[in-house]
Design a protein around this nucleic acid. Structure first.
Lengths: 109, 109
DNA sequence: GGGTTCATACGATTATGGTCGTACTACGTT
DNA sequence: AACGTAGTACGACCATAATCGTATGAACCC
């Protein structure tokens, strides 16, 4: 039996964010779409809320890439894994980057 | 025998620039370094000026990716191929993007 | 013309990464 | 306890892309 603490997820801290990894994470069309959807929603969204045209395992892969790059934060709530954009951390590490990407992708924020 | 006109290079026009391609181009560490060096120099640089830790053919490959994404402009001058950052075009297509990337990479511009 | 330099073209190799399928875990519900 | 749901883990496969080597081309110099 696992405790609640063991269900936490590893995230890079704000000062460990790497530009290359973030650009790499945003470079995939599916992941860019995820980020745009998250930004437009302004809230946390479960993985299944995105209706991605791939299987669940592929979806898991993409969310992991985004999390390990520090783009999204994930936490468990029941069986769901809620995703949130790490807006403040990204803005602190790379000022203006996320905003210009979202703007270029025509996302209203 | 080729004429001078045949030595010109194909470039995507400003309105054809795609965010995904640009992010993809910037996501590679070597290409990001090329862009940063170009931005810091503020001028045109030949491919050989970059001292990249790869062979010439690999170097050619990366410059082509940057050119086809619309990040750099290339023109022939003698035996050299001069590269210039397409700053204005990028700013027009994706306002603030290049600046925030360069700033995040600690490039003084 | 011959040699040198800067760069491209093409093919081969290798590494990376996106994709899927299956099995599994954790949580909630009945 | 049994079941359904949400997501993960792991291994396999395949497409893409990074890399190199060799051969080639264009411009310049002697």
């Amino acid at each position: 039996m696992r405790t609640a603490a063991e269900r936490t997820v590893e995230h890079p801290s704000r000062q460990d964010l790497q530009l290359g990894e973030v650009l790499q994470a945003l470079a995939d069309p599916l992941r860019l779409q995820i980020v745009c959807t998250l930004a437009a929603s302004g809230t946390e969204l479960s993985c299944s809320a995105f209706q991605l045209p791939v299987t669940k395992s592929t979806s898991t892969h993409h969310f992991r890439v985004l999390r390990e790059a520090g783009v999204v934060h994930q936490r468990y709530e029941g069986t769901a894994r809620l995703n949130a954009l790490r807006r403040e951390d990204l803005d602190a590490a790379f000022p203006g980057l996320l905003g210009s990407v979202l703007n270029a992708a025509h996302v209203r924020t």
